[in-house]
Write a protein that binds this DNA or RNA. Structure first.
Lengths: 217, 217
DNA sequence: TTATAATTAGAATGATAATTCTAATTATAG
DNA sequence: CTATAATTAGAATTATCATTCTAATTATAA
């Protein structure tokens, strides 16, 4: 759920800055209703008219705020990433991060990851469908993934015997690439055998991460 | 590259069966030009008019054959899966499958997989964008993945010490889930560190598969 | 309080593309 | 060879939505 606090820090091109309280509320409403609609729609089929109707607003007010539907979507994506960043900042600053064993740490990471994916399934699917393969174009998914790895990696490294060179870091980064790849694929086509909504999902993924990171002797 | 042979075996709802040679040729042309266009477009932005222009055909002839654009896309997807099946049938029936060691076999599997993804990148991206999460809806990606696992699994099992129950099979199937997830994600958002076009891609994936399948003692 | 900027409303416009229609033209079975 | 079914052409039709416009209405700073 996005809130006005996030909006305050946001300066997104394509959105005219809000000045009045009623506008601030409208933007927050548009964002949250947008997220709801994305549970059944992708960005293309998300109609501005339908969105405004749900918010009891009109297309006029929509375009008074956003340069285009495109700009609205960009804003929404950026706010969700800001929300994720706020969450990661808070949780990694707390003492919630397990530091007693690698399996515990990985279980905790995967559990959090799976929960985030479950909570943002609609948006994630829409972003995946819209994403260009081109690495120069920004997408919230790359950014959120990058963030997540940046936070987690030092904690993982700290629980393992040091290795010369960057081999360990490379293995960890690639393990995350496989993790997010698998999660994204669950959201998009859910190929099985493991599904996002299965209780065992996080556990299975954590075990896989462990296999990928710790070298066999 | 799709050909008339594939078309012969196909009976797709939404496509009126071809009777004359010129029609057969047109359908093959539409399919292959469609595949070409998908390198830069997804299914939505693939316009029937543009497609027909490239094939030196007209929209009239297009709709004479296909009930709708939807039906055309379905047909295209089914033909590509038929093509993949034909390829897998042939290669697994030959003596090309390594049976001397698991690393060799996995390297061979991943190399083939990466090549298929490179050759079909446009179509795969388009399918991923279109796919519904709903498992009841058919998508070529689930089907092709399922096929691939069905062919590969017995060969992998044969190279490992037997285990009681289905644990080994489950590990293998899940390793494939991660493999295809990672590949799909490369096609969609290419998050790095490893990319589909890097020479090391297949090797890295094969190493990961090995880690996932063989249990640490 | 009042001038001014911000906001709202919702009908009107425009653009894009899928789809249909009808009259030729062409292939093929008997 | 010829009747009939298949195919082609491309203009015309629809449908869907994003976007714009203009006249109220409302908030806010001085």
């Amino acid at each position: 759920m996005l809130d006005e606090e996030l909006l305050a820090g946001a300066d997104v091109p394509g959105m005219r800055p809000v000045q009045q309280q009623r506008s601030r509320e409208l933007v927050v409403r548009l964002m949250n209703e947008g997220l709801t609609l994305l549970q059944d729609h992708d960005f293309d089929s998300l109609s501005v008219e339908a969105l405004c109707a749900r918010c009891e607003a009109t297309v006029g007010s929509f375009y008074g705020r956003f340069e285009s539907k495109e700009a609205f979507i960009d804003t929404l994506q950026r706010l969700v990433v800001a929300d994720a960043r706020r969450y990661l900042d808070a949780i990694y600053a707390s003492d919630a991060v397990p530091d007693d064993s690698l399996p515990h740490l990985l279980a905790w990471i995967c559990k959090g990851g799976v929960r985030w994916y479950r909570d943002h399934e609609g948006l994630i699917r829409a972003c995946l469908r819209r994403a260009t393969h081109d690495r120069r174009t920004w997408t919230p998914l790359r950014e959120a993934g990058r963030l997540h790895v940046a936070y987690a990696l030092p904690h993982i490294v700290a629980l393992l015997p040091p290795e010369p060179g960057t081999a360990l870091e490379e293995r960890i980064t690639f393990a995350f690439q496989m993790l997010f790849g698998t999660l994204n694929n669950m959201v998009l086509i859910d190929p099985g055998p493991v599904s996002l909504r299965q209780p065992a999902a996080a556990r299975t993924l954590a075990a896989a991460m462990h296999q990928l990171i710790v070298l066999r002797m």
